Amino acid sequence: MLACARTGANRHQVGHPRWKFLTWCADADIPEVRRLAATVDRWWPETEAFIATGHSNAKSEGINRMIKLTARAAHGFRNPANQRLRTRCVTTRRAR
């Protein structure tokens, strides 16, 4: 399904692999596989949007993760200006 991303695939070309996957999961007699199918089905609108546009929020999620790790490593900042400075240093490309 995700292999169709950024290929210009139409709805049928994306829907058929999804149908095959969900059918395979339904035929499996494993509760974890059925739960996986339910999760994929629940998240399908978001997955379909990614396949159609090729856009995700991965960049912003990565920056948020870096900010949280910086705050955790500092055990809390007493000075907000220092917090902003340290966060800016961690999230810019020059620091990495």
Rank of each mutant, 00 (worst) to 15 (best):
N82E: 09
R6G: 03
L2W: 14
E48Q: 06
D27Q: 08
M1F: 08
A71H: 07
T87M: 15
K59G: 06
W43P: 02
V40N: 01
V33R: 01
L2E: 09
I67Q: 02
L85V: 10
A95V: 03
R78M: 04
G76C: 05
A9L: 05
D41Y: 12
C25D: 02
N10I: 02
R84Y: 13
W24V: 03
A5L: 09
W19I: 09
A28C: 12
W43A: 14
C89H: 10
P45T: 00
R94A: 15
L85Q: 12
N57K: 14
H75Q: 09
P17L: 02
D41P: 00
R88Y: 05
N79V: 01
R84N: 07
V40F: 00
H16G: 04
A38V: 08
A28E: 15
A74M: 08
A37R: 00
Q13V: 04
R84V: 06
G62F: 11
A5M: 14
L2C: 01
I30S: 02
E32R: 10
H75E: 12
K20C: 08
K59R: 15
A37F: 06
D29L: 08
F21D: 10
W24H: 06
T7L: 09
R84H: 15
T47M: 14
R78D: 12
T87W: 14
L2Q: 11
R93P: 01
R88L: 11
A37K: 03
F77G: 01
A38E: 14
H12C: 14
T7Q: 13
K59A: 15
Q13W: 15
E46K: 10
I67T: 02
D29R: 10
L2A: 03
E46M: 10
V90Q: 03
A58W: 14
D41A: 14
G8K: 13
T70I: 08
A95H: 04
G62Q: 11
G62T: 03
R93I: 04
W24G: 10
A81M: 11
L36T: 00
W43R: 10
V33E: 02
F77K: 02
T92Q: 08
A5S: 04
A37P: 00
R65H: 07
G15H: 03
T39S: 12
W44I: 01
V33G: 00
E61G: 01
W44A: 00
T39M: 15
A52D: 07
A28G: 04
A52Q: 09
R88G: 00
L36F: 04
L2D: 12
D27I: 01
A81G: 07
A9E: 05
R34I: 08
T47W: 10
C25N: 03
H55I: 10
M1A: 15
F21E: 08
M66I: 11
P31R: 12
T70L: 03
L2T: 01
V40P: 02
A5T: 09
G54M: 10
P31E: 07
P80N: 06
L36G: 05
C89L: 14
T7I: 05
T23D: 11
R34W: 06
L36R: 06
S56V: 10
D27T: 08
L85G: 03
S60I: 07
T92K: 11
F21H: 06
P17M: 04
L85A: 15
A37I: 13
